[in-house]
Design a binder for these strands. Structure first.
Lengths: 134, 134
DNA sequence: CGTATTCATCGACGGACGTCAATATAGACA
DNA sequence: TGTCTATATTGACGTCCGTCGATGAATACG
């Protein structure tokens, strides 16, 4: 798969102060995808939501489970849940009147795997991780 | 170390729709620290900065190295560099007129390690990771 | 059918964020 | 000392984001 499209780092021309490049630089598009994933984790409320969901025995929780410990309004909780869904961390399964949100298995580990390579920020989605699906 | 202070999840009282908790829920303070770390990674420009710095042979880059490929003004680049420094991902060493920014070894891996535990979001800083140091 | 409950969506408000031009600071070199 | 270069800081502007109340949609239950 061709990764380097933007940021060709063609000719640095001047640049008398710096060392040369040794590894590949992430493409702008991939950087945007990576940032979108971590932006979902960049809010304390959403971090707490993931923790609460994960702490349930079956890794499932409905909105009513979250609204009380978070001390937030119900629309706000639904708002954050949607963001975590769009980022690929949660799934929703509606049963009766209730909506149960569950962790996508391996999604958090996959996001952490992106940071594992040092600074390469490997844009390879580590197997079965479909973050945006836009 | 006492972790559970906020979010005692004392008595759920009603809650006829949900399953009980099995694991510990992250404290609100720790959630804020985790979110602060990932918020620094939640911007495409900052992701690209980390990638560019890491792609240099000695994992160092000065501001002039970044300004051109990012196509941003110099104050904006300095702004993002400061955020990445405060988050504990970069260090600055000024030599002469130039300021060289370098990756903090293991900082990205440590951040990724937080996601590795599934949804526990273990607030244990995995050895030698001092993110805020505020 | 009507009512109640659970959740999603809408519109609005305030604060935070990314960006820039202008300015300030600090070191290198005459 | 003065000037030039590289970087940091300031102030301002527009946009995005988190939050809420109000409303809408869908299901359960009399």
């Amino acid at each position: 798969m061709p990764v380097a499209e933007l940021l060709p780092v063609t000719d640095v021309s001047a640049a008398a102060c710096c060392s040369p490049l040794s590894k590949e630089v992430i493409a702008a598009d991939d950087a945007e995808a990576v940032a979108r994933t971590f932006k979902a984790l960049g809010d304390p409320t959403r971090v707490r939501i993931l923790s609460i969901v994960a702490s349930h025995a079956d890794q499932e929780a409905c909105v009513c489970d979250l609204q009380e410990p978070l001390e937030l309004s119900q629309p706000t909780v639904s708002h954050h849940l949607k963001i975590l869904m769009d980022a690929g961390f949660l799934t929703r399964s509606k049963r009766g009147t209730w909506a149960y949100y569950a962790l996508v298995p391996g999604s958090l580990e996959a996001a952490g795997q992106v940071l594992a390579g040092g600074g390469g920020l490997e844009s390879v989605r580590p197997e079965g991780f479909e973050p945006p699906t836009f």
